[in-house]
């Protein structure tokens, strides 16, 4: 699984890195950073939690 964030859509709601800090991090402004785009199988569920709770639909998962 690959996960990425659309920087045009992310406005820093911060749901992803609060709910799934194993996959998502925050930059200085509180916008989403994804340090490792390739999600290991054991973290796939976490990545989906981040995606499903982004109010802007800024997180994109590619299986």
């Amino acid at each position: 699984m690959k996960v990425r964030v659309d920087p045009e859509l992310c406005v820093g709601h911060g749901r992803c890195y609060v709910l799934a800090p194993e996959v998502f991090e925050a930059d200085e402004r509180g916008l989403c950073l994804i340090p490792v785009a390739e999600v290991p199988p054991e973290l796939e569920a976490k990545a989906r939690i981040g995606e499903e709770n982004c109010p802007e639909r800024a997180i994109v998962i590619e299986d």
């Binding site: 406005v11 499903e52 709770n53 109010p55």
Partner: peptide
């Protein structure tokens, strides 16, 4: 609720600055 994309803090570039 597993997926909660609520908009209580608005959205887009004017997303509530004080939301956190």
């Amino acid at each position: 609720r597993p997926a909660n994309r609520h908009m209580a803090f608005g959205g887009g570039i004017h997303r509530c600055l004080g939301s956190h």
